[in-house]
Write a protein that binds this DNA or RNA. Structure first.
Length: 461
RNA sequence: GUGGUUGUAGCUCAGUUGGUUAGAGCGCCUGAUUGUGGUUCAGGAGGUCGUGGGUUCGAGCCCCAUCUUCCACCCCA
């Protein structure tokens, strides 16, 4: 049979893995330094944990896993025939009947489930990070994969806005370390709700936010058309115009919003929250990340209730427009799992997109590919044993070294070192063993020398 | 889910209006060089032309279906 992998999923070769690990390590280090602790959850969750958490669109994108055994055995053939034959055959119910679990769609919902299940062992506020793949049955395209890694950090059990601030600091730390210029866009769901109230369409907040989220992409006219098609009244749309077109500095925008939302307690609360965060950012400036208030930022996920965070690449050398991070606050995510009134706030780096951007911009450091430093040529069993001793010593000193596993032709062994870009080769035969020396060849210059062990170590470190 | 696009050697790609035995570059293997890679030279292996149907005397090329690639929409990291 012909080897293949499922649509939208990828293999990663060594040259890619060293770069990927560099990203993961950078993020992990920052998370650790801020006191976040790692957890992992299983690739699969029960269907009922997943369903209904990401909206109708999200439900469609869930990978469903067929029950083990033959789930159809549980249905009698008569029943099946009746269901299939009936015009009202409920395919969704049928799928649920034969599939009790699915691949996780994100890390936030499994985390909420985790928190509820382990609430007695957790000290709140609980700061956790989680770096694992998630799966979405989306059509693959630029910056979009069916299997990709999210790098989440969340704080659960604290309402303090200091958490939002800390998350923003971590975003800055990570992208500064990676050398990537980014723009952190901030918004607040409460402000969006206030705007919906202000224009008299409180019920349509989701439709409104989804539409205005596209302002950048499709322009004002198209946004208004979409609002109309969602049944928003003309007067509401008219009232909305000056709001979504607000220009100026963050302070100017906020001042304008204070007037507009003066009658909306929720809206004012949102402004207060944002102001608090912006004040902190002013007192303790970020290292390299830019930030702004972006009123059209909505995010699709239903569960955000406060802060909304999104990060975009801010480098003219690339037109990569997808977000490389998303996040926000969700006041009652654990409620549906039976633990009400616990607030959480978190962020999620999209590692695969960050990889694509760093690669396009050539921002991976040269030395990420820290490969083998020294290869011992293998001449046979006697020489092998001798080399193994030296190899052990070298590795103890922290130098990456290997012995070619068979006494192949010299050409083959040298070719291996060359292909693997190993900078030094140690050639040890009878002669060298007798004289207690090592013939050390520098593969870049092509020069070689007889040296003792100390000199060898010196050359390699 | 909607619209478009792609598939020929390990990789990148040629392949004429449908016509004999499907090519190139790179890579790989062997040798020139039995303790010396990257350069050079000589030779060699490697293809169900994504898959399944159809049209035709004849299909890599035309038609249909399907899978895959990439892109846009929806949505999103």
């Amino acid at each position: 049979m012909k080897p293949a992998i499922p649509k939208g999923m990828r293999d990663f070769s060594p040259s890619e893995m060293v770069k990927r690990q560099y990203i993961f390590e950078t993020i992990k280090k920052v998370y650790n330094r801020f006191g976040y602790q790692p957890i992992e959850t299983p690739a699969m969750e029960n269907t009922e944990t997943l369903l209904g958490k990401y909206g109708d669109e999200g439900d469609k994108l869930l990978f469903r896993v067929l029950d083990n055994g033959n789930p159809l055995n549980q249905i009698t053939s008569a029943e099946l025939a009746a269901r299939f034959g009936a015009s009202l055959f409920d395919s969704a119910a049928f799928v649920n009947h034969i599939s009790g679990k699915g691949l996780r769609y994100d890390l936030t919902v499994p985390f909420a489930r985790y928190v509820v299940m382990h609430q007695n062992d957790i000290t709140f506020p609980f700061k956790r990070y989680q770096i694992q793949p998630v799966w979405r049955a989306d059509r693959p395209q630029k910056g979009r994969y069916r299997e990709f890694y999210q790098c989440d950090a969340d704080v659960i059990g604290s309402n303090s806005l200091l958490n939002e601030f800390e998350l923003i600091q971590m975003i800055d730390e990570v992208f500064t370390a990676l050398g990537l210029k980014v723009l952190i866009q901030l918004n607040n769901r409460k402000i969006l709700q206030g705007i919906a109230e202000y224009i008299g369409e409180t019920e349509k907040i989701i439709e409104i936010t989804v539409a205005i989220d596209k302002l950048d992409k499709i322009g004002l006219d198209q946004v208004n058309n979409e609002l109309r098609s969602k049944g928003i009244s003309e007067t509401a749309i008219e009232k909305l115009q000056p709001v979504i077109q607000l220009k100026g500095t963050t302070t100017e925008k906020i001042n304008a919003l204070k007037n507009i939302l003066a009658q909306s307690p929720v809206g004012l609360k949102g402004i207060e929250e944002l102001t608090y965060i912006f004040d902190l950012l002013q007192q303790l400036p970020l290292q390299s990340a830019q930030y702004e208030l972006e009123l059209t930022l909505a995010r699709g996920l239903n569960y955000y209730t406060g802060a909304i965070i999104e990060v975009k690449v801010n480098d003219l050398r690339t037109d990569f427009s997808s977000s490389v991070l998303g996040g926000g606050r969700y006041d009652d995510l654990t409620g549906i799992f039976g633990l009400p009134n616990v607030s959480g706030v978190g962020i999620s780096f999209g590692a695969d997109r960050i990889y694509d951007v760093l690669n396009a911009l050539n921002l991976f450091p040269e030395n990420v590919a820290a490969t083998t430093k020294l290869l011992f040529v293998n001449f046979g069993s006697n020489e092998e044993k001798y080399c193994l001793q030296l190899l052990g010593k070298i590795r103890k000193l922290g130098i990456t070294a290997e012995l070619f596993p068979e006494a192949a032709k010299m050409k083959k062994q040298m070719g291996y070192a060359d292909a693997k870009k190993i900078p030094f080769v140690a050639i040890i035969g009878d002669e060298e063993i007798k004289s207690q020396t090592i013939t050390l060849k520098n593969m870049t210059t092509g020069m070689q020398d007889k040296v003792d062990f100390e000199t060898l170590v010196q050359q390699l470190s």
